[in-house]
Nucleic acid binder design. Structure first.
Length: 583
RNA sequence: GGGCUCAUGAGGUAGUGGAUAGCCUGACAGGCCUCGGACCUGUAUGCCGGGGUUCGAAUCCCCGUGAGCCCA
């Protein structure tokens, strides 16, 4: 249930009735007023023009005409605003009751029977995932969780680029340099993980290409054969890609990202889907030919300069990346109602071309794109080829290690009072929860389009606006509940402190936040909410003793703490961040 | 050169055309040492510049400046 919705509907109805009595016809847009001025507000400025009256006079008249109702306790105007105050007793009761009844389901919406294919990550399998692109799985996975909570049937997909120059370069490197090269690699890279091993071949082959024309030509030959579907080459390339992909999956698993399906680009060539696309595009009136290579002339679509010509075949008839991507999208639309792609900002032009080509193919559906900007280093953009990167694996290691040291230090202090045994296994688990949580949170809290400069001290921030701060609030609440050993017969009327009311209102907001975040496809809204929720709890925690309180207060406050930890856990779950019971 | 995106205290970041622009870090001044200090309170510093639309602009439009990305 959405507690606030009930009050919002009631407010709209009251307002509507009042406006009708005054013979006013206008849309009702409610705002959230600043603190201390109620819960919903209606601005009368636009009406003053129609009525030729001062807006505060109109507000006064509306207030006079507002009827009585159960849910709204008070209505008054401040200046040109009509402010509505909810009946707090009722709100408290509904909110606490909903949360305790629905538990993990609080904040979830009914199933919509709408299928979404959400493509994310889809990094070229030529090396480990680096921090520059780490936003992709984190945004994609969080968004998938949020959309599921909002009631969509979501399946995530990773599009594996196993055709194309980059993967051919890597495969050729591996082909030429088997085991002997491994020894050389291990000096630079101690991590025994397939993706970290394979990137060595990729880098080596790139160096050779720059040095030798012959080498470069050999790669081109392989690429041609690969694109034509030459069995031998395709298999070699796929074997290389699979190794890298295995490493990628492990890395993603470490940050709680699990992708439902891996779709191989080559399958669309094999199954003839790409040829179908090419055939249809050739029939378009915008199709032209230059030396045997086919392209679409996009000038009439408002694309100028060199981008006007969108090539979809080469001279030898083989397809290009975007052509194959078109075939992939036809598959997506066949299998879903909505297709969402999480892509780096470098794919913007390509996406535009794809969308026009879909029009020409008479496909009404278009993919929705969630773009994000890169995380860059102070010395420039990250590059796997140049070796100027911070790998996600290294960042995770560092974060988990730092978290472990913190946990150990704090536990030593804490255990002096608690006489508990220190458990190595448990500390490691907690460190993982904290370390990976910190990474996910620090990336997801910033809006996608903002460019982020990677700095170790920011990425590993454990204080203030960070995951550990939020997780700690959860652990605190859990600790109180464990010590209390249950509660019963609580009555919400004992929750009257300012900090208690504020916390309850925050809890009541949650379903609205999920909705906003899902509809706008902006996961960072959840991150903002989670922080505000934890802050509200900390203020309550400071002012209101729970365990030492008198029986009635104690029970009510325990119920509130219980609600808090439950909602916080649900919200963190939408971001793929674990909520530890101890830290 | 053309296109897309971004610009908010010292650094970082939120902000739905509407009320006093929130928050984090750092600085300074405090509280509490509690139910587990990864806490809480207060102070100082801010909407890139210039036009426009509007009763009202950080938010929308135009021009400029700077950064990122793409195409050449």
């Amino acid at each position: 249930m959405n507690p606030l919705k009930i009050f919002e509907e009631e407010t709209k109805k009251l307002l509507n009735d009042a406006l009708q009595k005054l013979n006013l016809k206008t849309g009702i847009a409610l705002e959230t007023p600043p603190e201390g001025k109620g819960d919903f507000a209606f601005a009368c400025f636009p009406l003053s023009k129609i009525l030729k009256k001062a807006p505060d006079k109109i507000a006064e008249e509306i207030v006079k005409n507002i009827g009585k109702t159960e849910s709204i306790e008070k209505v008054e105007n401040t200046g040109a605003y009509v402010n509505f105050y909810v009946d707090e007793e009722k709100l408290k009761e509904i909110t606490i009751k909903s949360i305790l009844e629905e538990k993990g389901k609080y904040g979830c919406f009914p199933q919509k029977n709408v299928k979404i294919i959400l493509e994310h990550t889809s990094a070229n399998p030529t090396g480990p995932i680096h921090v520059g692109r780490a936003r992709n799985p984190i945004i994609g996975d969080s968004l998938a969780r949020i959309l599921k909570a909002y009631g969509y049937n979501v399946k995530t997909e990773y599009y594996v680029n196993d055709i194309g120059k980059q993967v051919v370069i890597m495969a050729y490197g591996e082909f030429l340099l088997p085991k002997t090269f491994d020894a050389r690699l291990s000096q630079k890279n101690q991590r025994n993980k397939a993706d970290h091993r394979m990137v060595g071949y990729y880098r080596w082959a790139n160096e050779q290409m720059e040095k030798s024309k012959e080498f470069s030509e050999k790669i081109s030959e392989w690429l041609r054969r690969c694109e034509k579907g030459d069995k031998e080459i395709v298999e070699l390339v796929q074997t290389s890609c699979k190794q890298v992909l295995n490493g990628t999956k492990q890395t993603l698993k470490r940050i709680n990202v699990d992708i439902d399906k891996y779709i191989w680009e080559s399958t669309f060539v094999k199954k003839g889907r790409v040829d179908e696309v090419i055939g249809k595009l050739k029939k378009s009136e915008h199709c032209k030919n230059e030396n045997g290579a086919y392209y679409l002339d996009l000038e009439s679509f408002g694309i100028h300069g060199r981008d006007t010509r969108f090539f979809f075949t080469r001279k030898d008839g083989t397809s290009l990346y975007t052509t194959r991507d078109l075939a992939y999208h036809l598959y997506k639309f066949k299998n879903s109602d909505i297709a969402i792609n999480v892509l780096g900002e470098d794919h913007k032009l390509e996406t535009k071309q794809l969308s026009i080509a879909l029009d020409l193919l008479d496909i009404k559906k278009k993919p929705e794109i969630v773009f994000y900007s890169f995380v860059s280093l102070p010395e420039g953009k990250m590059s796997t080829r140049k070796g100027r990167v911070v790998y996600l694996d290294d960042l995770i290691d560092e974060a988990v290690e730092r978290a472990y040291n913190e946990v150990k230090k704090r536990r030593n202090e804490f255990l002096q009072h608690e006489f508990k045994e220190r458990n190595e296994e448990q500390m490691k688990r907690i460190a993982k929860t904290i370390g990976t949580g910190a990474i996910r949170y620090n990336i997801i809290r910033v809006q996608n389009e903002k460019q982020i400069m990677f700095r170790w001290e920011d990425a590993l921030n454990f204080e203030g606006n960070s995951a550990p701060f939020i997780q700690y609030a959860h652990a605190r609440a859990c600790s109180i509940l464990t010590k209390a050993d249950g509660y019963k017969n609580f009555d919400v009327k004992f929750l009257n402190d300012e900090t208690e009311i504020r916390l309850i209102k925050k809890l009541a907001e949650f379903p609205n936040i999920v909705e906003e975040s899902a509809v706008s496809r902006k996961p960072h809204k959840i991150a903002g909410y989670v922080f505000e929720l934890a802050s509200s709890f900390n203020q309550f925690y400071r002012d209101m003793p729970v365990l030492k309180a008198e029986e009635y207060e104690r029970n009510a406050r325990l119920a509130l703490a219980d609600c808090f930890r439950s909602v916080l856990k649900n919200a963190l779950n939408l971001l793929g961040i674990d909520a530890p019971e101890e830290m």
